[in-house]
């Protein structure tokens, strides 16, 4: 998403935590959730079920859309006994991850729990993801070519 589109998003905070959850491993979410005290019971409204998303690109990178190919996606919707409905669409075929992501999405909408779940789950997950990204970017930066000026080499 471009910066201009992001600024007009109706719920940027939720968009952020859903993006973090979509990239997190199930075991890691479960482990972090265990530090959040007693969680409300939840029932599954839909899924977790596997399916596809057709990924689109743009001709030339910025022109008309075209269908590039599909990717596997798993979705899940849960309702907590406290009445919050959480959704998840996550890349891949891991059902447990989709269910945990939907549960955390529901918990994050609860103002009584939001701060704790943010601190104990979302923030550490996001930090880990940022570290991975920074590491890859740093590996890439190490392969940036530093040109020498040929004229100075001849003299």
């Amino acid at each position: 998403m471009t910066d201009s589109a992001r600024s007009t998003h109706p719920d940027p905070a939720r968009r952020r935590w859903m993006a973090v959850l979509a990239r997190a491993e199930a075991d890691r979410i479960a482990k972090l959730l265990a530090h959040c005290g007693n969680l409300p019971a939840h029932t599954i409204i839909r899924g977790p079920e596997g399916g596809l998303v057709m990924v689109r690109g743009r001709a030339g990178g910025g022109g008309s859309a075209f269908n590039l190919g599909e990717m596997t996606v798993t979705r899940c919707t849960v309702r907590t006994e406290t009445g919050f409905i959480g959704h998840a669409y996550v890349a891949g075929r891991e059902e447990r991850r989709a269910e945990l992501a939907a549960l955390v999405d529901a918990l994050m909408q609860d103002n009584d729990r939001n701060t704790e779940v943010e601190t104990r789950v979302i923030t550490p997950l996001e930090r880990q993801q940022m570290e991975r990204k920074a590491e890859r970017a740093s590996n890439a930066a190490a392969t940036r070519v530093q040109f020498f000026a040929m004229q100075t080499m001849r003299t």
């Binding site: 079920e49 399916g51 596809l52 998303v53 057709m54 690109g57 743009r58 859309a65």
Partner: peptide, 12 residues
Amino acid sequence: LPRFAHSRPVET
């Protein structure tokens, strides 16, 4: 598999 959606064009 069912298709859930199509994506927004990816921003290369």
